[in-house]
Design a protein around this nucleic acid. Structure first.
Lengths: 200, 200
DNA sequence: CCTGAAAAATTACGTGA
DNA sequence: TCACGTAATTTTTCAGG
């Protein structure tokens, strides 16, 4: 698979700022033609780098719905079941799964009983413990400067070129400038994961 | 300010699904002309309901850094300081503050010592307790209608708003619409517990 | 990846409910 | 005020190189 270059990253930044920006605008910025930009965006979508174009809505202006943060401590063998169920659930906006089987999600509750609804979504017998908090503020930062959209080696920080490598570690795809950085990262990740587990 | 109608909500839903969807598509869906849809979207932007059009990027394909979910138990007087600091921090993508002063955020750290990284982001002397977990997967689903489940008062069953209260009673967190419901519930619980004890 | 033309979408503006 | 229709403009897509 072809790797992302500087132009792709610049395009992503511009789209993060305004996803409805015309391709002709973008093409001026990056020094390509509009069709070329269109092609790149198509490719980014196909590769899954771009998940979707969407809208950031100020939910506080919309009536109804109480924002809550829910943390579930899920029995390990059921983590993926719970994740899949919540992923499909309408009220769930953000969903995080940690390596130790904690599932945290941010949702908007609208009426009725949370216990009953939770029971509909996930099998509560697979949940050891759960904790619900009212959310006072929730923010999301789509524009990511510097480190965010820079394609850098996850191990040494150097720029990753097309000679670099990719690897999926712990379910996440990382980029490396070379194979030795990949090996080193893998070792370090394993150590860190063991450390995080022992924190609990 | 004029309130939103069903058509506005439907437009927001369609945009949340695909922000680059042509207005003519939307106009077909909602039974308006394309210019009318354009007008409504302009108004939604002016009113601040629409913050921006943006792109949801699968960051796992992009950058180095280890995704973590951090939960801070912050001393009450410093909650807004911590929130402000994290809001500006580059590696922080999602930030949630609950009414009881817990700050949860999702960020990408460069690896190495998590404690050192955290110390860069927040003043740890204002934090009573913190908990870091490696994130295996993170997802975001933009939703407009938070229909589905709700937080009901454990005493009277009414919807709990941000004016409500919560209390941990017998190891379980309960929510109440007001302090008198909390008091009543507490009394009832104590009586029940005393009854159970005297059975032994 | 470019240019250039065709198709499509967006915007501007005048009119009417 | 809100929405519509038409026309002018801009943007996107599609060829061919």
């Amino acid at each position: 698979m072809r790797s992302l270059d500087e132009t792709d990253l610049r395009i992503l930044e511009l789209l993060a700022d305004d996803a409805r920006r015309p391709f002709s605008d973008i093409s001026d910025e990056v020094g390509l033609s509009a069709p070329a930009v269109s092609d790149r965006i198509d490719r980014l979508r196909e590769e899954g780098v771009i998940r979707r174009f969407t809208v950031d809505v100020d939910r506080s202006t919309l009536s109804g719905g109480t924002p809550v943060l829910v943390r579930l401590s899920v029995r390990p063998e059921f983590v993926s079941d719970v994740r899949d169920a919540l992923r499909e659930a309408d009220p769930v906006e953000h969903l995080f799964v940690t390596v130790d089987g904690d599932v945290t999600f941010h949702a908007r509750l609208d009426g009725g009983s949370i216990r009953v609804e939770l029971d509909d979504l996930v099998d509560l017998s697979t949940v050891r413990e759960y904790d619900v908090s009212l959310v006072e503020s929730a923010e999301w930062t789509p524009t990511v400067n510097g480190t965010g959209f820079a394609l850098e080696c996850a191990e040494c920080g150097n720029t990753v070129t097309s000679e670099g490598e990719r690897a999926r570690i712990g379910g996440t795809l990382y980029h490396f400038c070379c194979s030795s950085c990949l090996g080193r990262f893998q070792t370090r990740y394993d150590r860190m994961e063991a450390g995080a587990r022992s924190d609990n």
